[in-house]
């Protein structure tokens, strides 16, 4: 097993022991191993270097490696926990963990806050929301007049920015999503519950002697 593990570690930089990863996340050991099957497939789709590049991430999401999408770019940046421009396996598991149906609400709120805090200032600022909104409206070919976008932003900040300082802080965001729970829908991926049945081949490539479920 030692030889196999070191070979895996060599081929997949950032690969951590599945038992350790399972102990730090909502995933079982079997689920971490099933995620590794998925990871192997995505990380070898363009360059077989054991890491997920932005291009490979885009290819997995859009079946098109050149597709640019501001929201997808932001998710890639947040998955790239070590800021290396690539997602290694431990980043992949820890990031997907936030989307697990059993992950804490606090983690989901925290991740969603970072998603919209494009410039990492610790606040969701009006111009960040506007930038994302305009980019996505263009991509979706939905035409809205500038005035309409401003009305939507005015209403949103009137509701969310309780202290009226022009930006949404973490506690205002918590309060806002509690009043608008549909905003957290994108933070839960139900497929993560069935990941072992989606990628059953993990059983043949298991690194652990006894699969803990």
């Amino acid at each position: 097993m030692g030889c196999f593990s070191s070979k895996v570690a060599r081929q997949f930089p950032g690969h951590e022991d599945p038992v350790a990863l399972a102990s730090q996340t909502a995933f079982s050991v079997s689920e971490v191993e099933a995620l590794f099957e998925l990871y192997k497939s995505i990380s070898s789709s363009v360059v077989d270097d054991g890491l997920i590049s932005k291009e490979e991430f885009q290819l997995a999401l859009f079946k098109n490696r050149k597709k640019e999408n501001l929201f997808a770019n932001r998710i890639f940046e947040l998955f790239d926990v070590k800021h290396k421009g690539v997602i290694d396996f431990s980043d992949f598991v820890r990031s997907l963990n936030v989307f697990h149906p059993n992950a804490s609400l606090e983690d989901k709120i925290d991740f969603s806050f970072k998603l919209y805090d494009l410039d990492n200032t610790g606040f969701i600022e009006r111009q960040e929301v506007k930038q994302m909104l305009i980019a996505l409206l263009c991509e979706s070919e939905m035409k809205l007049a500038d005035e309409t976008v401003e009305i939507i932003l005015d209403k949103t900040f009137l509701d969310a920015d309780v202290n009226r300082d022009g930006k949404i802080d973490k506690s205002e965001w918590e309060n806002f999503v509690c009043r608008n729970p549909s905003l957290l829908k994108i933070m839960t991926l139900h497929y993560l519950r069935d990941i072992t049945t989606t990628f059953p081949s993990f059983v043949f490539n298991s690194e652990v002697d006894e699969i803990a479920t």
Binding site: F71, A72, V129, L133, L136, E139, N180, T198
Partner: peptide, 26 residues
């Protein structure tokens, strides 16, 4: 639903153009 009746974040979710489910080949 009219866009103007949504808050900005709802509109972003609705126009994001993909789902992370796609990662699983779904």
């Amino acid at each position: 639903v009219k866009p103007v009746s949504m808050n900005a974040f709802e509109l972003i979710s609705k126009t994001q153009g993909f789902s992370l489910d796609n990662l699983f080949g779904k």
